[in-house]
Design a protein around this nucleic acid. Sequence first.
DNA 1: CTTATAGTCTATCGGATAAATAGATTAATA
DNA 2: TATTAATCTATTTATCCGATAGACTATAAG
Lengths: 143, 143
Amino acid sequence: MLSKKAQYSLYALVHLAKEYKNGPVLISKIAEDEKIPKKFLEAILLELKTIGIVNSRKGKGGGYYLIKNPEKVTLVEIIRKFDGAIALLPCVSDMYYEQCRNCNNEETCGIRSVMKEVRDTTVNMLSNTSLADIIRREENVLH
Amino acid sequence: MLSKKAQYSLYALVHLAKEYKNGPVLISKIAEDEKIPKKFLEAILLELKTIGIVNSRKGKGGGYYLIKNPEKVTLVEIIRKFDGAIALLPCVSDMYYEQCRNCNNEETCGIRSVMKEVRDTTVNMLSNTSLADIIRREENVLH
DNA sequence: CTTATAGTCTATCGGATAAATAGATTAATA
DNA sequence: TATTAATCTATTTATCCGATAGACTATAAG
């Protein structure tokens, strides 16, 4: 399961993607619409700012807005930011690899080989899906 | 990532599958070979016993042994036992479903639709792989 | 230049869970 | 009946998750 942070960030980012180029959206507006605890959402958006996906403006008329093109923001990067590895085992993770301390030979280990396939297909799906894809899915299902 | 319990249980069960019908294996033997903390492994095996995958015998000549055919023990049931849902979101989990409290309509939600695909392919891979498959993978890679 | 607005920073909290350990007890075998 | 090995109870330690509180700072409008 994804952490609440990762889950909330997905909903918040899709919200911002829908308002792309419409100017800033209030944290409180996002929090209310997406039913996310406001203070918690603040911390999440702040983190998303540090990786250059969103930016913010203070004061009246301020709020958060997407700065990366929604076509270019993929689910995999958001999930990795908050939850780390996609892989089910450290020894099959690309980004957070750790040597296996249970098996003797990673090359021949059967468990590892299955888990590698799982990881690869999951990463594929998540990195081929952007915020724009999400929005298109919602539009397509309506007609 | 899988919990340590889930990870250890996979290694322990593959070990037992290799000794299927060779009589009981000592906890301490498994612990040593698979580099699992012995006391921790005790608890894990006890849990596996409650779901009818393994059984044990006390006293001299005792230990743990697999009672289910290695062809019939799949990775998905082991992982579910220790870590619960395979899905990344509660709203796409079959076994641990919870209604989404962030989106308004699960039928049209784009995030959910992607996550459902991820879950389905992951569950497919994990439920189509048995302990026997794992062992065959290891044998095949050696020639 | 002042006031209202809205994000930022620091800090902290309870609760749950994870991972591992210790020691006494019970069951099985020879 | 002694030895072996699993079982039970319990406790420990650490870490993280999810959430909240309040003071601070930047912005824009009037």
